[in-house]
Design a protein around this nucleic acid. Structure first.
Lengths: 201, 201
DNA sequence: CCATGGAATGACAGTAACTCTCAAAAGCTA
DNA sequence: TAGCTTTTGAGAGTTACTGTCATTCCATGG
């Protein structure tokens, strides 16, 4: 996907970026988000605090990267055109989940855990979800031939995003808000319900 | 609704609270959120910075109060039981909007404007929306006799919240993200679409 | 009317997340 | 190697927020 960085400079940058992220994650888990200072992270990653903020504009941003959106969009585009939009999104999610490696899954779990625990991070994660909403609407617009701003598209996109929000953390906060395997099954079922007009029986 | 505060102390507290909020709002609009310091707000409201933080745990919280949720819940409960849940929520929203005084409307507009402009505040507003999701699910559970955690309830609640999110700011960020009168009509139409199974024709 | 207890306030010190600036170091290019 | 650009580190400064403690203000019993 992303062409491997070639020059020494690029490689170094990628390495320090990764180092900062890993040490941050580790420290957050060990001693909590709030009580981990940027200085500690910087020291652990062997860079200066200044450098930390050059790589991540805010402390929050260390865990806030999410590269699934474009992958999901691609997966939706890969569905045959005769499949109705909600079902296409559903299948795309299923396909992406199924191809997730255990390592990716595990790191995703850890991120979600932090989102659930730190309200500040949760807010930001929800913000990303709201941005994803526009992407969903774009995809629906493509598939239906309607404009992305059309009310029917917005309503459908919103409904899809809302179902995701309601079933997966960090939107869901009832019960244990850690990510579980079964949550995805519930999500797929939920989208199926939506597709069938939200029957109550 | 809220019984008027009786003792002098209570009255004073309410007054300083209101003063802080008003001066904060004014200063934010005059010179921007970021470049308004808590010290300035405190000085304008004639209290010490310490007192500011006693009334509002963080700078953000000055504009983050939202007392519509309980009102909306009540309005939904007031709908006759034979009305299906989504339609009941739709009617409740319509009823609440219609009874909103011009002053309330105007202050709501101003708040939304700040949410749209300051990403930090937008995130927090979305957080409130996510919390409202649980309330919506509770109301749906009541009306349908299902458990609040039931997948059908969660899916429906999520869909409703998502439609709101997609049509009103701060969820909607496309176009001008200030609140307009016509937005509510669009929202009511959007909920009607959802109720009718999101037809594309 | 006054005294006493509890709550609200203000002054102060301290921490940590950022921001800015500038000079040193490291990588690139010829 | 020499010269240029990019990256880094050090340091100072701002601001949001926390905790403490003495003071002031309000309520209540005598």
């Amino acid at each position: 996907m992303t062409s491997p960085p070639t020059s020494l400079r690029e490689r170094k940058k990628a390495k320090t970026r990764a180092a900062i992220r890993e040490h941050a994650m580790r420290l957050f888990e060990e001693q909590g988000y709030a009580s981990t200072t940027v200085d500690q992270i910087a020291e652990a990653a062997e860079v200066s605090p200044s450098t930390f903020f050059r790589y991540f504009p805010a402390k929050e941003d260390v865990i806030l990267v999410d590269d699934y959106d474009p992958i999901l969009v691609e997966a939706v585009r890969a569905q045959p055109p005769e499949v109705p939009p909600i079902e296409a999104i559903r299948r795309a999610m299923r396909d992406v989940f199924l191809t997730m490696s255990p390592e990716v899954w595990e790191s995703e779990r850890r991120r979600q855990k932090l989102f659930a625990e730190v309200p500040e991070l949760r807010s930001r994660a929800l913000n990303q979800m709201a941005e994803a909403l526009d992407l969903i609407c774009d995809v629906i617009a493509e598939r239906t031939g309607l404009a992305a701003g059309d009310l029917r598209v917005r309503a459908m996109g919103g409904a899809v995003a809302g179902v995701v929000l309601a079933i997966l953390p960090p939107g869901r906060m009832t019960g244990n808000s850690t990510l579980e395997r079964g949550d995805f099954d519930r999500l797929l079922d939920g989208l199926d319900l939506l597709q069938r007009g939200l029957p109550l029986v």
